[in-house]
Nucleic acid binder design. Structure first.
Lengths: 149, 149
DNA sequence: ATACTTAGTTAAAAAAATCAACTTTGTATA
DNA sequence: TATACAAAGTTGATTTTTTTAACTAAGTAT
């Protein structure tokens, strides 16, 4: 029991995938993000998922702090599922996948545009300090600093 | 044989995950992206992966045009694995995962900074047309246009 | 009292991943 | 010349995970 196979690799990507990389998991989080918060709403939106798997995934995500339950009816006691901040912050991951898909899928369903102008958008990297667009990024190990050029 | 279980959901995310969402797949692509192009290099970097699975995943990714092989030695004929453009363009997905991980993992290994200033970066969206940063994005179904406010 | 709905649970079957040993082709070494 | 070694896998058995399908429990509605 409880013998989850997890990646034992010292890398943000692998460790993040240990939380959100199981089959169906990202799709479940995405359904909640777009407003489907009831068990059966999620189930109906995700054609092919089974009750037991959805139930198990929701529990796992709750344990890991991405999802929380909220009582929405007292008298048949009923809970809905909400995303926590860390769940909501997967939005950039979803958008990156949507944009990748819009370029590379044979059949594509969605694109991402500027809500004001309707222009198509791309992903960029911006300095947290100045808000300026960053020309070149570097992935660095935590603890180390980059040598200044 | 060859009965892959795939998501049958009309959504860029689900369809993208049908290509890159299997266990180990994103990690394999990432290893190639960071320069590990030989079968055994990838295998050694990904502690726990088995030869048969790596072999199968590489074939699948090649079929789907994310990876290609290149002869790097004639006389023991040896191939290395390279990413195609569509494979390389997963970089934003990796970066989104690295950034999410750097905020939410208990133990975090990497962060992303401005290569010039060392400032930490965040993800933003810019217009393909003007290059300006976009304040609010909208995910829209393909084919439809958004009503202008 | 009977049927229906929401939100699951349980158990068996099927599919996928892991583990471990083996193969093939070629190189290097004693 | 034989022996060991390495790269790049393949094969088959075992284990884990997912799917399928039927069932349950608590409350509502007719």
């Amino acid at each position: 029991m409880e013998t989850k196979t997890r990646y034992d690799i010292p890398c943000n990507i692998a460790q993040s995938l240990n939380i959100i990389g199981d089959r169906w998991t990202l799709l479940i989080i995405h359904e909640i993000l777009v407003g489907h918060t009831l068990f059966n709403e999620i189930k109906k939106s995700l054609k092919g998922i089974s009750s037991n798997l959805l139930s198990e995934r929701l529990k796992y995500l709750e344990q890991h702090g991405l999802v929380e339950t909220e009582l929405y009816s007292e008298h048949p006691p009923r809970y809905c599922y909400k995303l926590t901040e860390s769940g909501k912050e997967l939005e950039d991951v979803f958008n990156a996948l949507i944009i990748w898909g819009s370029k590379h899928l044979k059949k594509c369903y969605k694109k991402i545009i500027d809500a004001e102008t309707g222009d198509e958008v791309e992903i960029g990297y911006y300095s947290k300090k100045t808000g300026e667009r960053v020309k070149r990024i570097a992935v660095v190990p935590i603890g180390e600093e980059i040598e200044s050029k």
